[in-house]
């Protein structure tokens, strides 16, 4: 028996999953570029490192800031890919599923209820609300009959808007509005030694997601196929959501919102390499680090000696890349 379908040679050449992007060398090159950005970030700033006390400053601000970029960047990108697998929708990410907004609500509540609590307590509360909120999102999704590509993120964005309105209302009535503005404007400038170490938690989360990768790939084919091959779909769903909630909660507490990162990085990787999660995860991590680091460097350079928050740069670049991706995805879909 032979296949009778005529193949477009151009499509065949482009479609084979054995292209340049599948080679280990490609990962090496991309890793090198990312490393260069990260090292660059260490040496960009207003303070003259050669001056007296430069060494101390290097370890008090530059190193923590750069590590925070690496951790938060990879965490948000990985969270995006996990949520996209769990919802089987390319347009879901922590900032379009309401996860970040719920984390913000938890953070504000922790400030009001436990004014003297440590960063760790705030982080736990933010993660808990992020988890509860994302589960609400998932529960709503399961009840929706018409799960089209666009309905899913719209539900998430609406849910996020409602939660964020409640957060703002609470902040207004308790005089915390200003704190809200500065805290959630995703920025790495306040990251110094002693204020970022908690971010290492997200490294653990990334590791756990790597171990769970095959299951998440199977879950990405939907509950029926997952059950058919003997996967406990509900458990994977819960575990995945919990990990996203922890990573988002921690990142929100330490640096604030990082819009678009969880959206554009997984989609770019998917376009280039398909959706085999295990082999994609290093790419997703590196992509998140590269983009967030570039944006932070741009934010530091544009108006030196002042800084533009990274979330603003991310918003501008992210929106442009996102529109390009939507157009590209529509063509290939």
């Amino acid at each position: 028996m032979t296949s009778h379908t005529a193949t477009d040679p151009r499509a065949a050449a482009a479609s084979h999953a054995e292209g340049w992007w599948q080679r280990p060398a490609a990962l090496f090159v991309f890793g090198g570029i990312t490393l260069a950005l990260v090292v660059g970030s260490l040496f960009i700033g207003v303070y003259d490192l050669g001056a007296e006390g430069g060494r101390e400053m290097f370890f008090i601000t530059r190193v923590p800031r750069t590590l925070a970029l690496v951790l938060a960047g990879s965490a948000m990108a990985v969270c995006g890919v996990v949520l996209q697998q769990l919802t089987q929708n390319r347009f879901v990410s922590p900032t379009t599923a309401g996860t970040s907004e719920w984390a913000a609500l938890g953070l504000l509540l922790s400030v009001i209820l436990f004014p003297t609590a440590s960063l760790n307590v705030r982080m736990v509360l933010a993660s808990l609300t992020a988890f509860a909120g994302t589960m609400v999102f998932m529960a709503i999704l399961q009840r929706i009959q018409l799960r089209t590509t666009l309905i899913v993120p719209i539900v998430g964005i609406m849910l996020g808007a409602v939660v964020s309105a409640i957060t703002t209302m609470i902040a207004v009535s308790t005089d915390y509005l200003q704190l809200l503005g500065t805290w959630f404007m995703g920025s790495f400038s306040p990251v110094v030694r002693g204020r970022y170490e908690i971010l290492w938690v997200v490294a653990l989360v990334c590791l756990a997601i790597f171990l769970l990768a095959h299951r998440l790939t199977v879950a990405g084919l939907g509950p029926d196929v997952a059950t058919n091959v003997g996967l406990n779909y509900r458990r994977v769903m819960l575990l995945g959501t919990a990990m996203v909630a922890v990573a988002t909660g921690v990142t929100t507490v330490v640096v604030g919102f990082l819009p678009f990162l969880g959206l554009i990085v997984p989609n770019m990787v998917s376009l280039l390499r398909g959706d085999d999660l295990r082999s994609n995860l290093p790419w997703v991590c590196l992509g998140g680090v590269a983009i967030v680091t570039s944006c932070d460097i741009i934010g530091r350079l544009i108006r030196m000696p002042f800084e533009i928050p990274v979330s603003m740069i991310l918003g501008v670049i992210g929106a442009a890349v996102f529109i390009a991706l939507v157009l590209r995805l529509r063509r290939t879909a």
Binding site: Q85, R90, V218, V229, G230, G274, D275, D276
Partner: peptide, 20 residues
């Protein structure tokens, strides 16, 4: 929704035996 190759998809059929 996932972009998998034919081989990757068929390999997932082995999940019960190999867990990936």
């Amino acid at each position: 929704v996932a972009r998998l190759t034919v081989r990757q998809l068929v390999s997932l059929g082995r999940f019960p035996h190999s867990q990936g």
